[in-house]
Simulated assay, not measured.
Amino acid sequence: MPRIKPLPDELDPLAAQLVVRLRELKTHGELTTRRLAAGTGYSARSWERYLGGTSLPPRAAVEALARLTGTDPVRLLAMHEIAAASWDIRRAESAAQPRPGEHEPEEQRRSEDEKGERREQEREQGQPPRRLPHIALTAGVLAVTVAFMAALLLVLRLDENVAPAAVATPAGTAATTPPHSYLCRIARTDGRWSAGINNGRDTEISYGDTGTDVAEAQCLLRRAGISPGGIDGMFGPLTLRAVKTFQDRAGLVVDGMLGPRSWKALRG
């Protein structure tokens, strides 16, 4: 296994975090720079620079590596945006400082390898090098850095606190299912009316109850000519009103509860 080279000491810390993560994905996927080149469309030499910390990878290269290794690109791209902003700030500050031999022709101060590397990187980025005033560039990139740092913190916080399989339900909403519907099979057996739902039980029920006993009572109330609403097995406001109406007609205590006497009257 080739020895992992240490990152340059002068590499920006934010860029170093990105490079370390890219190295981890390469190692975990058992990828060589040749396989990276074949799978991402960026040359092996470019990946050597990206993973060596001498050149910042373009966004598309980071996204291609995430796709190649089956990694969620959101967090990687957030790290890249922050690293790119910090990288630009350092380049702008470096360009603003006077250098020895600054007035010499640029071609005499830059080696052929450096010029070739710059041209290759510009082709991959698909953009010509930008030349902006130092103060405006620094202020603009600093604002972008702050914004994307906040975005990265949010991504990390969500990554730690939210289970991947959990789906949050917005406040004020609830998962609803269609109400159950019962079929009334009214029949009279041994002098008692039955709806064929609760096996003839006379269980005491009241407002808020649900189930087959409520559905049985709703069927018998409808047989008595009083509508309880739907036959859904839910003792709600309509069923409560129907029970009270039936109790009043039958001369019973109007309490809205179906006890033994109310059941006897319903089945009678």
Rank of each mutant, 00 (worst) to 15 (best):
R75N: 09
G39H: 10
G211K: 04
A147E: 14
M257H: 06
K244A: 05
R192H: 13
R34M: 10
P6N: 02
R131I: 10
T245Q: 14
W193R: 12
L7P: 03
W263H: 08
C219I: 02
E216I: 03
G236N: 02
A215T: 04
A139R: 07
R130G: 08
L18Q: 12
G233K: 06
G191C: 08
L31P: 09
P133Y: 02
Y42K: 07
Q218F: 03
A166F: 06
P178T: 15
P8L: 00
A83K: 00
Q127C: 01
L142Y: 10
P237K: 06
H80M: 09
L65P: 04
L158Q: 06
F235S: 03
A15S: 08
L18R: 11
R99G: 12
R75P: 07
T177A: 14
P260A: 12
V243F: 07
R223K: 14
D113L: 01
F235K: 03
P57M: 03
R21M: 05
A150K: 11
L221A: 07
P73I: 06
L240K: 11
T27R: 15
L137S: 14
P57I: 05
L137E: 14
S194L: 14
A217V: 14
R109G: 05
Q121V: 10
A38N: 12
M79N: 05
V19Y: 00
P178I: 11
R34I: 11
I231C: 00
T177H: 09
R123C: 03
L77Q: 13
L220N: 07
A187K: 14
A195H: 04
A85W: 00
V243H: 06
L156S: 07
T138G: 02
T138F: 04
P58G: 02
Q218C: 04
